[in-house]
Design a binder for these strands. Structure first.
Length: 155
DNA sequence: GCCAACGTTGGC
DNA sequence: GCCAACGTTGGC
């Protein structure tokens, strides 16, 4: 059982999209970075807990908790020529990109990025490192426990 | 809109 | 295989 942080742009899929239909698994499509893909392929397991993070928006930060609800499988958007995520170099026989599904666990108290940066306990978190662009990062258990406490998540 | 960081591409 | 140019991410 591992802990993760996954970034989503709320304009595309925000925590309220999941709240609106909480029983339906949401494919985490659109990952086009090998390191992030490999995390999903090699390390994620069903049941892993994930901090749902809003990025590229007015108020970046942790907005909720989701859990991994599938193993990794080919990302359908890579084959869709009309999709922003279309990859002409990928084929169904040898799909390059994968995604997992996630399910809402809870929308929580919002934890702004700024508060995370100012918190000495969270120093060293991968997502806070300068220049970090990875959309999926592991979260170590001590950081998870602290954040869970801050957002009022009891899991 | 700016800029730092860094992954990808393509010429050689 | 090197590496400069380019594109993307993402906070500000």
């Amino acid at each position: 059982m591992k802990y993760w942080l996954m970034k989503s742009e709320p304009d595309e899929v925000g925590i309220d999209h999941l709240v609106a239909d909480p029983a339906t698994p949401v494919p985490w499509f659109g990952v086009r970075n090998y390191q992030a893909r490999n995390f999903m392929r090699d390390q994620m397991q069903q049941g892993d807990l994930v901090l749902f993070y809003h990025s590229s928006c007015a108020e970046p930060g942790v907005a909720g908790v989701v859990r991994v609800a599938s193993t990794a499988y080919p990302d359908a958007t890579q084959f869709d020529a009309g999709s922003h995520y279309f990859d002409p170099k990928s084929t169904p026989a040898e799909p390059r990109w994968l995604n997992v599904d996630v399910l809402l666990v809870a929308k929580t108290r919002f934890l702004p990025l700024q508060a995370m940066r100012e918190d000495p306990v969270l120093e060293g978190m991968q997502v806070l490192k300068r220049g970090n662009r990875l959309s999926i990062t592991p979260v170590d258990p001590a950081h998870w426990a602290h954040i869970a406490n801050l957002i009022g998540f009891k899991g």
